[in-house]
Amino acid sequence: MQILDGKKTAKTILNTIKIDVAQRATTGKKVPHLAAILVGANGASQTYVNSKVRTCNEIGFNSTMIEYEEDISEMKLLDKIQELNEDLSVDGILVQLPLPAHISEKKVIEAIAVAKDVDGFHPENIGRMIMGEEEAFVPATPYGIMLLLEHNNITTKGKHAVVLGRSNIVGRPMSILLSNNSNPGNCTVTVCHSKTENLNEICSQADIIVAAIGQAEFLQPEMVKDGAVVIDVGITRIPDDSKKSGYRLVGDVDFDKVAPKCSFITPVPGGVGPMTIAALMKNTYKSCTEKD
């Protein structure tokens, strides 16, 4: 069993971007600028956005953090997005999800200019991704997973991949990327969800499992065949009195029980999370340099 170290892989990717940004700066070229919008005081969302902004600063990007109270009107938020769309200094715009119930996530996502949609959620970018077009911005978490597989030389061609979860943010795009005629890719993909029958049997036939079902320690050892590659997208806080914080972080995989059966497995934390941020930075860099 080998750990797929997302933190280490992400650092390698970010270091390369940092060097490229420094070279752009020394030659007088524009450096990437990411604008992040946070609505409300959701603790997890604040942590995610702060991490993205911190990473921008570490690799030489410009960043703008915009925070609103939870009761901001939908119209005011949409007006701000339009302002950022028109701001030539901004290369990437992300609005941290989830949003308060009175704001339509669909409207917000569709309001972001396609060329600045570095989260890759706009329907046009999703369509381009399905078509396999290079100019598409791929959703950051699935893109990060593909980068993790690529940088660690994980063989995917001809393999049976099972994706647990069908969300538009992870599950659906992940299934498309794994089935694309690319490397990594060329998998035969099965998408499973809450209505899937014979789930254990299907999972136990998989060479690669991407667990993005949102249930703590859902994937158990009897669902995993020997030598499988397991990618854990989930992250949940569960009570733990032995920890100073009173909780510990676990994924969608029961790591201690499943890991001995795997050829490769991602940890939680330190697996998919850092790769998501690295992918977001690659998208933002791409948005900037496409204007050269």
Rank of each mutant, 00 (worst) to 15 (best):
K8C: 13
T9I: 14
T12S: 12
T12H: 15
I17L: 15
I17Y: 00
I17Q: 10
K18W: 10
D20K: 15
V21Q: 02
A22G: 14
A22Q: 10
T27A: 13
G28A: 13
G28T: 09
K29M: 08
A35W: 06
A36R: 01
L38W: 12
V39S: 12
G40A: 13
S45V: 12
V49F: 07
V49E: 03
N57W: 05
E58G: 06
I59Q: 07
G60Q: 07
S63Y: 03
E70I: 04
D71Y: 09
D71K: 06
S73Q: 12
K76M: 15
L77K: 03
L78Y: 12
D79H: 07
Q82T: 15
E83Y: 06
E86C: 07
V90A: 07
D91Y: 02
D91M: 08
G92W: 02
I93Y: 13
V95A: 00
Q96C: 04
P98A: 01
P98F: 12
L99H: 05
A101Q: 02
H102F: 03
S104I: 10
K107D: 06
I109E: 08
A113D: 11
E124D: 13
E124W: 11
G127L: 13
A136V: 11
F137V: 14
V138D: 09
P139F: 12
T141E: 05
P142T: 05
Y143I: 15
I145K: 09
M146P: 11
L147S: 08
L147F: 09
L148C: 03
I154D: 13
K157N: 15
G158R: 11
L164R: 04
L164K: 04
N168K: 14
G171H: 01
R172Y: 12
R172P: 07
P173C: 12
P173M: 10
N181F: 05
P184M: 01
N186P: 09
K195A: 08
T196F: 06
T196Q: 01
N198V: 00
L199Q: 06
Q205C: 11
A206T: 09
A206F: 12
V210F: 03
I213Q: 00
G214D: 03
Q215G: 06
E217Y: 00
L219T: 01
E222W: 08
M223L: 06
A228E: 04
D232I: 00
I235F: 12
R237S: 07
R237K: 15
P239K: 15
R248H: 05
D254S: 11
F255D: 11
K257C: 07
A259G: 06
A259M: 14
P260I: 12
F264N: 13
I265E: 08
V268R: 02
P269Q: 14
V272C: 05
M275H: 04
M275W: 09
A279L: 04
A279K: 02
K282P: 03
N283L: 00
Y285A: 00
Y285K: 08
S287N: 03
C288A: 13
